[in-house]
């Protein structure tokens, strides 16, 4: 065991889930993942407590906490707040140093992030106000088809035919979907169309920032196999296999930053 007993935590409160990662001596010590509630402070604390419990630690054992995600603006438990863009860059770089491009799809937005060899952000682009291509949107779609969110991608993979769909807007996509259902299209074919149309939106973001290998896919939606395949097809890339749950990458990056901030602030040598 290392002499360095410092523990660092990252807490990422997103619109659908709150995540936390505790690092010790450069190793992931424990993680926590809970659904977000209406109170973002509480959600963050829940996620953090879950990780602390797993680790057998108390909050006081933590040297430094960085908050990220939408909940970062109200995270009294954190020493510092950093955006999830920077955190996803750091977290990805920590696990996969060869990655230069990140696709992050979370609850309410998706991001195209370009990073350098040190995990510093060189450029990024995010979806506009329209929610197409986000976890929230997929949740709505899961509702339309009355299936579980986590099954959407696998269902889409069973498609025998992809229904062409426009990427204009969630509003259009949703009504288009409903009319396709009414017309008797097979759900798997429609879902395949939805995934491809979202992938087209993502490709639009990358037309602004460019792509450099390796490519990583983070965020909750990264667990959707149908989405991963559609993006690989649209961007003509192969996505690096994640070493941990890709939904935890932001929290991991925050923990990595907690470590360097606390060092910089002279809290340990």
């Amino acid at each position: 065991m290392s002499l360095n007993k410092n523990f660092f935590a990252g807490v990422d409160v997103g619109s659908l889930a709150a995540k936390s990662v505790i690092l010790q001596d450069g190793e992931i010590f424990a993680t926590g993942l809970v659904p977000s509630g209406v109170n973002s402070v509480e959600s963050g604390l829940n996620a953090l407590n879950l990780a602390l419990e797993t680790a057998g630690l108390k909050k006081e054992d933590l040297t430094y906490i960085v908050g990220t995600g939408y909940g970062r603006v109200s995270a009294p438990y954190a020493n510092k707040a950093v955006t999830e863009i920077t955190c996803h860059a750091k977290g990805t770089n920590y696990l996969h140093p060869t990655v230069r491009t990140i696709i992050d799809m979370g609850g309410q937005d998706c991001k195209a992030i370009r990073i350098d060899k040190d995990g510093a952000v060189i450029d990024f682009a995010m979806n506009d106000k329209c929610a197409a291509g986000t976890g929230r949107f997929l949740e709505v779609m899961a509702g339309v088809f009355k299936v579980r969110l986590e099954d959407l991608g696998a269902i889409a993979l069973a498609a025998t035919d992809t229904v062409p769909m426009s990427s204009t807007c969630t509003v259009f996509a949703e009504s288009e979907t409903i009319s396709l259902v009414a017309r008797g299209e097979k759900p798997e074919n429609i879902l395949s169309g939805i995934h491809h149309s979202i992938a087209n939106r993502i490709a639009g973001l990358f037309s602004r920032v460019g792509i450099e290998s390796d490519v990583f896919f983070s965020g909750g939606v990264a667990k959707n196999i149908g989405m991963k395949n559609a993006i690989e097809e649209a961007l003509k890339v192969t996505i690096v296999k994640p070493e941990i749950d890709p939904q935890l990458i932001g929290a991991l990056g925050a923990a990595v930053l907690a470590r360097s901030f606390s060092k910089k602030e002279g809290l340990w040598a």
Binding site: Y70, T83, I85, T86, A120, V121, F124, D128, K129
Partner: peptide
């Protein structure tokens, strides 16, 4: 460094814009 902010006059995207701008400022300062 270049960031496009596509917006309207409603406050509903305040947090979304905040995140983008904050990341942009972080990137520049870094």
């Amino acid at each position: 460094p270049f960031l496009e902010i596509h917006t309207e006059y409603s406050g509903s995207d305040f947090e979304a814009i905040r995140t983008r701008v904050e990341a942009f400022v972080e990137m520049i300062k870094n």
